[in-house]
Computed example of a mutant assay.
Amino acid sequence: MTITEVFAPAKVNLSLHVTGRRADGYHLLDSLVAFASIGDRLQLSQAEALSLTVSGLFADGVPEDSRNLVWRAAEGADWRGHIGLEKSLPHGAGIGGGSSDAGAVLNAFRSQGHTVPEALALSLGADVPVCMHASAARMRGIGEKITPIPLPKLPALLVNPGVEVPTGAVFSGLASRENDPMPAEVPLFDGVADCAGWLGAQRNDLEPAAIAAAPQIERVLSDLRASRAALLARMSGSGSTCFAIYPTLKAAHFAAYEIGAEHPEWWCVATELS
């Protein structure tokens, strides 16, 4: 039996500007997205019927049926077989776990010669197209406009306080849906500090509404900003995962140790974003 191994990296919104809302209710976004060196892993094996099993640190609560984006991606691509999903990323956490899983298997289906309809990725969620790209990009519109962006490797710490934040509740709590986009051009960055400095002038427009829904996010951001050598701290996506950027990976690991020791119940992982 042929088994295909697939890696689904964590997606991090380095910025997320909400720039409008269409008549059909979809929000318009302008987001700089990067991907981590950590993520979920999947195994695909051919079989007569579609099946899915979930294991790993964050398997609890992850559906193994059509409620899972991976299952829906397989159905949409008319793929049949068994999918084993090892969940290393917290779900409902603003780092695109389910979307990245779906994007990764869609890429795998294509590599196996299966037809993946162009509209399928976006129908599964706004983050799925950029997760199929799986490297730094600017995401605009409702997620369908993807522009690759060269970024330096960004040493980072991801922290999640163990609180799920419903995306719908965050968007409904927005103070404004008509906000400025990012600058027209993303510059070429001269290293990590230059990139972090530019990002400091950008925003995550969902952050205030997410903090209102889950006040623990504010504590995470406070701890990240207070950590030694942190260049920038921000929430990713609709929360509750937050990230900080550091000048070196060693500094990110040191911050992970300090914050993890103080909050052993939090998920703290040093990584690189690119």
Rank of each mutant, 00 (worst) to 15 (best):
T2F: 14
T2H: 13
I3S: 13
V6M: 06
F7S: 12
A8H: 03
P9G: 10
V12D: 10
V12N: 08
N13W: 09
L16K: 10
R22I: 10
V33M: 15
A34S: 14
A34K: 01
A36I: 02
A36T: 05
S37K: 03
Q43S: 15
S45G: 14
S45R: 15
A47P: 02
E48Y: 00
A49T: 15
S51G: 14
S51M: 06
S51K: 11
L52I: 11
T53V: 15
S55F: 00
L57Q: 12
D60L: 14
G61C: 12
G61T: 12
E64M: 13
D65R: 06
R67M: 08
R67L: 14
W71I: 13
R72F: 02
A73K: 08
G76F: 08
R80D: 07
G81W: 00
I83G: 02
I83K: 01
L85E: 11
P90Y: 05
A93L: 10
G96E: 04
G98A: 10
D101V: 09
D101I: 09
V105G: 01
L106C: 13
A108G: 08
F109T: 06
S111I: 01
G113W: 03
P117K: 01
P117F: 08
E118S: 14
L120T: 04
L120D: 09
S123R: 12
S123D: 11
L124K: 11
P129D: 00
M132Y: 05
M132C: 14
H133K: 05
A136S: 08
M139Q: 05
R140D: 00
G143K: 09
P152G: 07
K153I: 13
L157P: 10
N160E: 04
G162M: 10
V165C: 01
P166Q: 04
P166G: 03
T167E: 00
A169P: 02
V170H: 00
V170E: 08
V170P: 04
F171K: 10
G173H: 02
L174C: 10
L174A: 05
S176H: 15
S176N: 15
N179C: 09
N179H: 07
M182C: 14
P183W: 02
A184M: 09
V186T: 13
P187N: 02
F189E: 12
V192M: 04
A193T: 13
D194W: 04
D194L: 05
D194M: 09
N204V: 06
E207M: 12
P208C: 07
P208R: 04
P208M: 10
A209Q: 11
A213K: 10
Q216G: 08
R219N: 11
V220F: 07
L221Y: 00
L221S: 09
S222G: 07
L224M: 11
A226S: 12
R228Q: 14
R234S: 01
R234P: 09
S236V: 05
S236R: 02
S236D: 08
G239V: 07
S240N: 09
T241S: 07
A244N: 06
I245D: 00
L249S: 15
K250N: 14
A251D: 15
A251I: 07
H253R: 15
W266C: 03
W266D: 02
V269C: 11
A270L: 05
L273A: 03
S274V: 04
